[in-house]
């Protein structure tokens, strides 16, 4: 057991899987000698060599296309998007090629596409985005986003071992801010299972990513004020762990969805729809969402703070629901 940051836990997941399985290899921009823009892959080229840690041209379609081809031949590629924003340039290969191989012709594509997502770091419109909604609509993909170092490692291992294309979104705000004991053993965090971080009798917050710690703070403060607020960390966005969501919401009767991605057409809309369809009779209030404003992510710290969800926004919405 060692204390590791979220970023180190991701690297540890990659390293352990590369040690365990020689089919696992990495490809992406600046990931080799340079160790990656955020140093997620630092040192891996020394351990595994340039054949398994491949520096590529700035060609996301080549990176993902090559990962698909290699996966079809039984390899376990992990493709890095230097910033997850850049994944838009290879949208076709992910949604039309990788995601449809199994359905169209029975072929497995055991590929991971990973990269840093998210804001709160003043990255501006092209280095702050959350892209899950673009892919959440695509059958055949899986999407995960860890919120703890423990999950970062366990989900990475699960993603690499999965026989489907998995998008692994890691939040850059959490990279070096979170640190906890991460076991060195070979554990996986199963894809498709949400984590109930707190049980709540009065309100359930469903969230993921960098807002999980924020929601947990809100829940603690609410508890001090006498309210029992639960927090469900989705961890896997696709396929959604509907059973856990329904169970927790049925217990509390109130649902607040919190995500950093923009409001319209976000993952929260799907969560809300499922609960409205399947747990309506348990609801004691309207379903509420706290999400980013429907704008690009602005550069200025002042503007970014205004656009992205903040703790007071979560607090306010939680109080309104509790008072409903």
């Amino acid at each position: 057991m060692a204390e590791r940051t979220y970023l180190e836990a991701i690297r540890r997941g990659l390293l352990e899987e590369m040690d365990r399985d020689e089919r696992v290899f990495l490809l992406g921009e600046d990931i080799g000698e340079f160790g990656g823009a955020f140093k997620v892959t630092a040192g891996l080229i020394d351990r595994f060599g340039p054949e398994r840690v491949i520096d590529t041209p700035i060609s996301e379609s080549a990176i993902v296309g090559a990962a698909i081809g290699a996966a079809l031949l039984g390899m376990r590629p992990v493709a890095e998007m230097q910033f997850i924003d850049f994944i838009s340039t290879t949208f076709d290969l992910i949604t039309n090629f990788a995601a449809k191989c199994r359905y169209r012709w029975g072929a497995a594509v055991p590929m991971v596409v990973r990269g840093p997502c998210g804001g709160y770091v003043h990255g501006g419109p092209y280095h702050s985005q959350n892209v899950e909604a673009y892919f959440h609509h695509t059958p055949g993909l899986k999407i995960v986003q860890p919120s703890t170092p423990y999950d970062a490692k366990g989900l990475m291992k699960a993603a690499i071992r999965d026989d489907n294309p998995v998008l692994y979104f890691e939040h850059k705000f959490l990279y070096r801010r979170l640190r906890e004991e991460v076991p060195d053993d070979d554990y996986v965090v199963p894809i498709g299972k949400a984590a109930v971080r707190r049980r709540g009798k009065d309100l359930t917050i469903v969230t993921y990513g960098a807002l999980v710690p924020v929601c947990l703070e809100v829940a603690s403060e609410m508890e001090a004020a006498g309210a029992s607020v639960g927090v469900v960390d989705l961890r896997t966005l696709l396929p959604l762990d509907e059973a856990t969501i329904l169970e927790e919401v049925s217990r509390s009767g109130k649902l607040l969805i919190v995500h950093e991605d923009t409001l319209t057409g976000g993952v929260g809309a799907e969560v809300a729809a499922r609960v409205a369809e399947k747990a309506f009779e348990y609801l004691d209030g309207p379903i509420r969402r706290v999400a980013a404003a429907d704008t690009p992510i602005p550069f200025s710290p002042v503007l970014e703070e205004r656009v992205l969800p903040q703790k007071p926004d979560v607090m306010r919405a939680a109080r309104e629901l509790l008072d409903y």
Partner: peptide, 20 residues
């Protein structure tokens, strides 16, 4: 390897096949 309708997509995919 089965094609998709997006012409050109097979070139990077087959590069990956060659790599593997």
């Amino acid at each position: 390897i089965a094609p998709s309708s997006m012409v050109g997509a097979l070139v990077p995919v087959m590069a990956g096949v060659a790599l593997a």
